[in-house]
Every structure is written in structure tokens, then in C-alpha cells.
């Protein structure tokens, strides 16, 4: 039971990162492998605000989101905006940004990894259906649910969402309707970056901040996207929960292969459903 809860809480952290990435890839065709690095920037900024300066945690989340959004704007305006459809170039930018940001955070925040944040009010534990469980994890789940609902509502029920969805399916038609798809895409990129930054701060409650997150978290987020199907919010949620659960459960079942088993799960699902669980993208 604890293992299941653990999986779900990790799943929600991954959902926060993965959903943004999924939208960026899905709506713009931009393969931003630096998305995990934005998470990392958020985590470090969050550490400065919440731990160094001792300011309230919600402020840390806002600052983390803003910082990641700022970096997101920068790499979008300087690079990705001009690289639509150029995959070689997008990969180069991604790796370049990952390497450079890993160096920069060590420069700014030092080479020691940051321990998980201690935040008043989120530090203790709550009694959940008779189980004692860390408050921070419950908080993460709650944020994840609220955020997921919000995103889903945005995508399914608003005009912006309709444009984004239509843009994924038939960009030509959306453009002929006089809609500036590039603006929508830029906005999405920034929002996705901000969400990654916020996720970094929230995830910092349980994982702290490390220079290696640019790659480590990216990989998990990527598996979420691959499993869930590109551009689908419910898909990202399901993918994230699968990743979280298979991580947490395999610790109990196959302790020495907990990383590997995740990828096996992914491979099996891909063989059965090549387009991911949501099946949004027809690939054959």
C-alpha cells in the first residue's frame, strides 16, 4: 500500500514535468531535451528562495516558475523559434543547453547537491486512511491533481485549447483562419517551461536539487511522454503514474533492477501500442 502511494506521488512530480514537455513536443514539434534542465533551474532557484532566504514556499514556487520561464523564453527566442522542423539543430541546442546549464548551476549554487527542502508546514506527516504519510507527498499529489485538471480544462474547454489541438492536427488550416500559430506556440513553450520550473521547486521537497537532474529527470519525463503519447494531458498523467508506480513497486519486487524494469515496461507497451497509451499520434 505504501509502495502504491509512493508511486503515485512520484508519478505526480513526473506528470508536472511531463505534461509541459508533452505539449511542447506535441504542439510545436520541438524536441526540447533541455526541458529537464529547466526543472533543475527551478529546483535551484526554489532552494535559494525557500531555504537560503527563508521565504514562504509559495513564493519559492513562483520564483522557480519565473526563473525557468525566463530561461525558456531565452532559449525559445534565441534558438527554437528559428528551428522549427530542423531536428538536427534542435538536438544540438538541447544538448548544448543541458551542458551549459549544468555548468552554470554549479557555478552559481556550488558543486554540492542540495538536500530536500525543509518547509514549515510540509515537513511532518499526516494520517491518511490509517497510514502515516509525509505531508509533502500529499501536497504534491494535491498540486498534481489540481494542475492536471486545470490543464485538461484549458486544453479541452477553452478557445486557446481548441487552437492548440487544431494546430496539432492541421496547422495549415489553423493558419488560414488567421491565427498566429507561432505566438500560440511561443506561449505554450513559456508555459511549459514555467510548469517545469514550478515542478522543480515542488519536487525539491523530496529530491532536493542536483546538477545531474538535467539528464536524470529528463529521462523520466521522456518516458512519461513516450508512454502517454505526445500532446495528450490525460496520456501524460497515465504515463507518469505508470512510471512512478513501476519505480516504486520494483523497489519491492526487483530491488536491483528498479531502473531497468521501468524501461522494460515502456518497451512492452510500445510494442503493443506504438503511439503511446493515448494513441493520439498515428505513426504507421
Amino acid at each position: 500500500m505504501l509502495a502504491v502511494l509512493n508511486g503515485i506521488s512520484l508519478g505526480f512530480v513526473l506528470f508536472l514535468i511531463g505534461s509541459g514537455l508533452s505539449l511542447i513536443i506535441g504542439s510545436m514539434g520541438i524536441i526540447n531535451l533541455a526541458h529537464g534542465a529547466l526543472y533543475m533551474v527551478g529546483a535551484y532557484v526554489g532552494w535559494s528562495v525557500a531555504m537560503d532566504a527563508g521565504l514562504p514556499f509559495w513564493l519559492a514556487i513562483v520564483c522557480g516558475a519565473l526563473a525557468a520561464a525566463a530561461v525558456g523564453v531565452l532559449i525559445h527566442q534565441v534558438f527554437f523559434r528559428h528551428l522549427s522542423g530542423l531536428l538536427d539543430e534542435q538536438i544540438l541546442v538541447s544538448f548544448g543547453v543541458v551542458y551549459i546549464l549544468a555548468d552554470v548551476v554549479q557555478w552559481v549554487w556550488g558543486t554540492n547537491a542540495k538536500a530536500p527542502f525543509s518547509v514549515p508546514g510540509l515537513d511532518g506527516s499526516v494520517n491518511l486512511l490509517g497510514l502515516i504519510y509525509p505531508t509533502a507527498r500529499v501536497f504534491i499529489m494535491a498540486v498534481g491533481i489540481v494542475f492536471g485538471a486545470l490543464l485538461w480544462w484549458l486544453q479541452q474547454r477553452t478557445r486557446i485549447g481548441a487552437i492548440v489541438r487544431a494546430g496539432m492536427d492541421d496547422p495549415q488550416m489553423v493558419r488560414t483562419m488567421g491565427i498566429r500559430l507561432d505566438l500560440v506556440a511561443a506561449g505554450l513553450f513559456v508555459i511549459g517551461s514555467a510548469v517545469a520550473g514550478a515542478a522543480g521547486v515542488i519536487g525539491g521537497l523530496v529530491m532536493g536539487a542536483q546538477p545531474s537532474f538535467g539528464i536524470d529527470i529528463m529521462l523520466l519525463a521522456l518516458v512519461v511522454v513516450v508512454l502517454g503519447g505526445v500532446g495528450s494531458i490525460p496520456g501524460a498523467l497515465i504515463g507518469a503514474l505508470i512510471v512512478g508506480l513501476s519505480q516504486a513497486v520494483s523497489v519491492v519486487l526487483f530491488p536491483s533492477f528498479s531502473g531497468f524494469s521501468l524501461y522494460v515496461v515502456m518497451a512492452v507497451i510500445l510494442v503493443l501500442r506504438p503511439a503511446g497509451i493515448s494513441g493520439r499520434v498515428v505513426t504507421q
Binding site: I25, I31, L87, L219, V225, V226, L270, P274, A275, T283
Partner: peptide, 13 residues
């Protein structure tokens, strides 16, 4: 089983 951007992501993973 996939292609395009998906292929990149899958080979990565």
C-alpha cells in the same frame, strides 16, 4: 514501430 520525433524519443529511452 514509431517514427519522426517519436523515433528519437524511443531510441533515447
Amino acid at each position: 514501430r514509431t517514427r519522426g520525433i517519436y523515433f528519437i524519443l524511443v531510441t533515447f529511452a
